[in-house]
Amino acid sequence: MTGIKVGQIVGRSSYNCDILFRVKNIDGNNAELCGEDMRLVADAPVDDLIIIKEQDRKRMEKIQRQKEESCYHLFRQDRKLIRERNEYQVTSGYTKKNSYFEVPGKVLHLDGDSLYLKKCTQVYDRLGVPVYGVHMQEKEMPLQVASLIEMVRPDIIVITGHDSYSRSKGEESDMKAYRNSGYFVDTVKEARKVVPYMDHLVIFAGACQSNFQSLLKAGANFASSPERVNIHALDPVYVVSKVSLTPFMERVGAWDILKTSLTGKQGIGGVETNGSLRRGMPQYMNEE
């Protein structure tokens, strides 16, 4: 008896415990796993699982947090440069004392993992990006996305959760070989029925190993995963935050999002897109 229970943090012995997983469900000798930091869902025999000791878990989590903080500070540096450029433009090269305010693009974030959603929301708040987060199963997303767009009126939408690609079930072009890519594709299509234009509603879609080409073809601006690799839980946040905080008269290119992502070009890609931030004058104070 292994003693594996739902909710425990485990690693797969056959993969040298390279990824931390949460045990989501156990059915006999089969366990359904969700990545603790990666947007990956996997099945594994219970007897292949190893419970990660607290000290090992803390060590691995510390390394992961360091990567996340490095990405955060890189993003903040980039944001600072944009703000300085905006201030230079508004003040006509610092020759006038014009005050202004900024309205970042609003994000609707649909997530198949409630813990990831909470983690993502915390980062949005740190970055100053307005977000309306909704947790729901991936299969529910195509049914709910249209009404949510009408209610929230977002500038940007994130469609994510968990996914995986199984080579044994088909080629990369075969949607049956993916756990949730089909739901993500259908959700993008439903969103585009409401807002057809890519610069009127910016869409990020996908998770670990998702069908990148199909997601872009369905109408996503940005998606995962070009080389069917795992992506970090926070990658969608940094992609759309870059769009949210870039002035709408400027373009966000593929390189712009890759340099502040945790995964890079193997896991994230897309097409150039207008930013969503708008500037206004004069500056005013919000009354609570």
Rank of each mutant, 00 (worst) to 15 (best):
R57M: 11
P104L: 03
D199L: 04
E272L: 12
A177S: 10
A44T: 12
L148G: 02
N230K: 10
G275Y: 01
K193N: 05
G206T: 02
V252Q: 05
N286Y: 10
K217Q: 13
Q213N: 13
G105M: 02
D256M: 03
D235V: 06
F204H: 02
T91L: 00
P236I: 09
V202F: 01
F75E: 05
F21I: 07
I159V: 14
L258A: 12
I4R: 09
Q213F: 11
E102A: 14
G105T: 01
Y124R: 00
V239Y: 03
T246D: 07
M198N: 08
P247T: 04
N286H: 12
V41C: 13
R76V: 08
Y88A: 12
A254D: 13
Y15S: 12
V41G: 13
A218R: 00
V243C: 05
N230E: 14
E61F: 00
A254W: 06
I51W: 02
G270M: 08
V239A: 04
Y165G: 07
S225D: 01
P142H: 02
D199F: 03
Y178P: 11
F184V: 05
R278M: 15
Q64I: 13
K53M: 05
A44W: 07
L115M: 15
Q55N: 10
S224K: 03
Q137Y: 11
S214C: 11
K139R: 15
N86D: 15
Y124I: 01
P130G: 04
V107H: 00
L108Y: 05
I268A: 04
Q66D: 15
V271D: 01
M60P: 07
V202H: 01
F184M: 08
E87G: 14
I4S: 08
D235G: 05
A42H: 08
M151S: 14
D113Q: 02
G264Q: 07
Q283C: 15
S214G: 12
E102Y: 06
S168K: 04
D56P: 07
G269D: 08
Q266E: 15
K80S: 09
C208G: 06
Q122A: 06
D186F: 04
D43C: 12
R153D: 15
S99E: 10
Y100N: 06
E150Q: 07
G219W: 00
E287R: 11
G28A: 02
K53P: 10
K139E: 15
V202I: 08
N98A: 11
A207G: 02
R179E: 09
D256N: 05
D256P: 05
K242D: 10
V185R: 02
V194N: 08
K67T: 14
M136W: 04
D111C: 10
K58H: 10
K53C: 08
C120P: 07
M136T: 13
K242G: 10
K62M: 13
T187D: 01
V6D: 08
P247A: 05
K96W: 06
G280V: 05
R12M: 12
I257M: 08
I19N: 03
P247E: 04
L262W: 00
Q283E: 15
V239I: 06
D18C: 08
I52S: 06
A233C: 11
A31L: 02
E190R: 03
E250D: 13
Q122N: 03
M38D: 14
E250A: 10
K58F: 12
V23S: 13
K189T: 13
G182H: 04
V195M: 02
V107F: 00
T2C: 14
A44P: 11
T121Y: 00
D56S: 14
M281K: 09
T273M: 06
C71S: 06
W255R: 14
L143H: 07
